[in-house]
């Protein structure tokens, strides 16, 4: 079955999800995975879809024209076979909290260290909070460690970065417990 990635973004208001879901339902799409949230004043949706018959991307794009007329930006991408499957990531799951006075390069410096150590980011949220005079940057980054690293190794890496960037960083394990 052909899988597609669908991205929708536009000025937030009630009804974006239901307009989208109506089209998906009428089209006969399956939503395999999705995440939607407000970012600034925009509502953003990302969905992984499949359809038992449609494999043509243009046919898929056409179905969402109505949304574009409502002022939403729509992007459809056809996935390569297997692209809908999440790879098996067996390592420890760690949450990294980074926060401090806003300055350029916080995300870059942190993610550079992660990438150099083959640490995979599976979820990332950043937000500018505080007042206009004293802006504070908050970054929450969920990562999967490679099998040769544990949370103490990640803590050591982040401690070093904490000194360099002059921000607060904490690391904790969030590996799920099966009960």
């Amino acid at each position: 079955m052909q899988h597609f990635a669908l991205t929708i973004i536009g000025r937030d208001r009630p009804g974006i999800v239901s307009s989208t879901a109506e089209i998906l339902f009428q089209l006969g799409c399956n939503v395999a995975d999705s995440s939607s949230t407000i970012l600034g004043g925009q509502f953003a949706m990302i969905l992984i879809l499949s359809h038992p018959e449609i494999s043509d991307i243009e046919q898929m794009e056409q179905a969402f024209h109505g949304l574009e007329e409502q002022g939403l930006s729509v992007f459809v991408r056809a996935l390569k076979p297997g692209g809908e499957q999440r790879p098996d990531l067996p390592g420890e799951l760690c949450m990294i909290s980074v926060y401090g006075s806003d300055k350029p390069g916080i995300v870059y410096q942190v993610t550079k260290v992660l990438s150099e150590n083959n640490i995979n980011i599976v979820d990332l949220n950043t937000k500018l909070i505080g007042s206009a005079e004293r802006p504070v940057y908050v970054m929450m980054c969920e990562t999967v460690l490679p099998e040769n690293l544990d949370d103490d190794d990640l803590k050591a890496l982040m401690d070093e970065l904490k000194q360099q960037l002059n921000v607060d960083i904490s690391v904790r394990t969030v590996t799920p417990v099966e009960l």
């Binding site: 969030v174 799920p176 417990v177 099966e178 009960l179």
Partner: peptide
């Protein structure tokens, strides 16, 4: 008290 954990279930 309260404690938050990421749970899964068989």
């Amino acid at each position: 008290g309260s404690k938050s954990m990421r749970e899964g279930c068989m």
